[in-house]
Amino acid sequence: MQVRAIHLKLGRLSGVVKEALLFSYEVACEGTPLQGSRLCIEEIPVTVYCPACDAERALASIQHFRCPICDTPTPQIMQGKELEVAALEIEG
């Protein structure tokens, strides 16, 4: 049985950079059962809850925690902090 790929969800607010993770993945996997596997990263945008719109909205920028529609400030994060192994792709 061989792991072909790891599917990872990576939020923009996870504190982890996609490029850095991809760069180190191959080295980290050497000599482990994951050697030769792919790392598939799905980047998760940051969404917040806007109390004025009563709706979940995608942030235009993580430097600007305001509703992109009505400009109400909101600190309530709905998604974007993920650093999660979503799935493994296995063969054999």
Binding site: L83, E84, V85, A87, E89, G92
Partner: peptide, 16 residues
């Protein structure tokens, strides 16, 4: 033997 790749859902936080 099954050689088709299959997807196993994990959904586990790396820093769990």
């Amino acid at each position: 033997m099954n050689t088709q790749p299959r997807l196993i859902e994990v959904r586990q936080n790396v820093l769990k």
